[in-house]
Simulated assay, not measured.
Amino acid sequence: MASHRRIPQHGPATLAGVTVLSAALATAAAALSAPPASADPAARPAAGRGAATARVDVLYEQAERATEKYDGADARTRKLRAEVADLQDRTARAQERVNRMRGRLGALAAAQYRAGGMDPALKLMLSERPDSYLEKASALDRLGRHQAGRLHELRAAQRSLEQQRRETAAKLAELEASREQVARHKKDVQHKLATAQRLLNALPRADREAWERSARSEGRAGAVPDPAGSVPSSGRAAAAVAAVRAAVGSPYAWGSAGPGAFDCSGLTQWAYHRAGVSLPRTSQAQRGAGHRVPLGRIRPGDLVIYRSDASHVGMYVGHGQVVHAPYPGARVRYDPVGMMPISAVTRP
Rank of each mutant, 00 (worst) to 15 (best):
1 M>V: 13
9 Q>S: 15
9 Q>G: 08
10 H>P: 03
13 A>F: 12
14 T>P: 03
15 L>E: 09
15 L>P: 08
16 A>H: 04
19 T>W: 13
20 V>M: 15
21 L>R: 09
29 A>C: 01
30 A>I: 02
31 A>T: 14
35 P>R: 07
39 A>Q: 10
45 P>D: 01
54 A>S: 12
54 A>V: 07
56 V>M: 05
56 V>S: 00
59 L>C: 06
69 K>Q: 15
71 D>C: 13
73 A>V: 01
74 D>P: 02
77 T>W: 04
79 K>H: 07
79 K>R: 15
80 L>I: 03
80 L>S: 04
83 E>H: 09
84 V>W: 03
85 A>Q: 08
86 D>A: 15
87 L>Y: 05
87 L>F: 09
88 Q>V: 06
96 E>G: 08
97 R>C: 12
97 R>F: 10
101 M>H: 00
104 R>Y: 10
104 R>I: 11
105 L>Y: 03
108 L>V: 14
108 L>M: 09
110 A>L: 14
111 A>L: 14
114 R>E: 15
115 A>C: 04
118 M>K: 13
119 D>Q: 15
121 A>H: 06
124 L>W: 13
126 L>N: 00
140 L>W: 07
145 R>T: 03
151 L>E: 03
160 S>N: 12
163 Q>H: 06
167 E>P: 11
170 A>G: 07
172 L>I: 11
173 A>V: 10
186 K>R: 15
188 D>T: 05
189 V>W: 02
199 L>G: 04
204 P>L: 02
204 P>V: 02
205 R>Q: 11
206 A>C: 09
213 R>D: 03
214 S>W: 07
215 A>N: 09
217 S>L: 14
222 G>N: 01
223 A>E: 03
226 D>N: 02
237 A>C: 01
238 A>I: 01
242 A>F: 12
242 A>V: 07
242 A>G: 11
245 R>Y: 11
245 R>S: 11
251 P>R: 00
252 Y>T: 01
254 W>E: 08
256 S>H: 01
260 G>L: 09
260 G>I: 05
269 Q>K: 09
273 H>K: 15
273 H>E: 12
278 S>F: 12
284 Q>N: 14
285 A>V: 01
286 Q>K: 06
286 Q>H: 04
288 G>T: 12
291 H>F: 13
298 I>M: 00
301 G>A: 06
303 L>V: 06
303 L>I: 06
304 V>Y: 05
309 D>V: 01
318 G>V: 12
324 H>K: 03
327 Y>V: 11
327 Y>W: 10
335 D>T: 13
336 P>F: 02
337 V>D: 02
338 G>L: 05
339 M>A: 13
340 M>P: 04
341 P>H: 07
343 S>E: 05
344 A>L: 07
348 P>H: 14
